[in-house]
């Protein structure tokens, strides 16, 4: 139960901590904004968990997946907006991204905690496992924060942020295939021999860049479009802005 709790906590919480690090370096919000986002997200997740049976039965048992898809798409659209526009004075936008992103992740972990809280001998391993998982997540987040803060080129941090959000939105494809809302064309290749999905590297790369050992064409297409679209739109916005500034001003 202890190891299991650590694994589950890492799976659900590590993406949140990576997002917090990326947002802190990229958009420089204050910690109170980010923590407010986490708080709101956890409260919304508690609502979902309290109504888990109802939610899961929506659309012939596809409710939970659809809810995850909606939150992932919303978080992606907000993050894409953050990439396209200048990341200045966007504290509440950053907080909203965190809040929306936290909902499915903390709901997943809460289902496990709530389900086993009253089980005999489960409380201590759950608390201990959560603490250990929290320690690992904080360590990774601090390491990423230090690493990204030392990067002088803002384009590198922006690309890392775009890659992270693209990797998250690509999960929508897997969720839609799972509930038969989207066809599964099968994997294009299988790199499981080099980096398996279930390995430590596989887990970390999944969080950072949406790595899949055996991705389908739909998954890869979504990943690349989601990565390139906001970066391209930002480049166009800057190009238009620069051109409009460089035009000579005619005075009457």
């Amino acid at each position: 139960m202890l190891i299991n709790t650590v694994v589950l906590f890492l799976r659900d919480a590590l993406p949140i901590f990576v997002l917090l690090s990326l947002l802190r370096v990229y958009a420089s919000p204050k910690w109170r904004h980010l923590l407010a986002g986490v708080g709101v997200g956890i409260m919304l997740a508690a609502l979902v968990v309290a109504n888990q049976h109802t939610v899961s039965q929506w659309y012939q048992g596809s409710g939970y997946e659809l809810l995850k898809c909606i939150t992932l798409i919303t978080a992606y659209m907000l993050a894409a907006w953050l990439i396209i526009k200048e990341p200045k004075h966007v504290y509440w936008l950053a907080a909203t991204i965190v809040a929306v992103f936290v909902v499915p992740r903390s709901a997943d972990f809460s289902v496990f905690v709530v389900g086993f809280w009253f089980q005999k001998d489960a409380l201590v391993p759950i608390l201990l496992g959560t603490t250990l998982g929290l320690g690992i997540c904080v360590s990774v987040a601090v390491l990423l924060d230090v690493l990204l803060s030392s990067v002088t080129k803002s384009a590198v941090v922006r690309t890392a942020f775009a890659l992270f959000v693209a990797g998250q939105i690509a999960n929508v494809i897997l969720l839609l295939q799972q509930i038969d809302w989207l066809a599964d064309p099968g994997p294009l290749w299988n790199m499981g021999v080099i980096i398996a999905d279930e390995s430590e590297y596989g887990h970390l790369l999944k969080v950072l860049i949406g790595y899949e050992a055996a991705p389908s064409s739909f998954y890869l297409l979504t990943l690349f479009i989601a990565l390139l679209l906001p970066l391209l739109m930002r480049a166009i916005r800057l190009y238009v802005q620069r051109n409009s500034r460089s035009k000579p001003e005619y005075q009457a």
Binding site: Q52, H53, S56, Q60, G61, Y64, E65, D108, V111, G115, L174, Q177, Q178, I179, D180, D184, E212, A214
Partner: peptide, 17 residues
């Protein structure tokens, strides 16, 4: 590539292939 929570005393569907 599937991940699905099945709540206690409940049933759920997973499509594969």
């Amino acid at each position: 590539n599937r991940e699905k929570v099945i709540f206690g005393n409940a049933q759920a569907n997973v499509f594969i292939g």
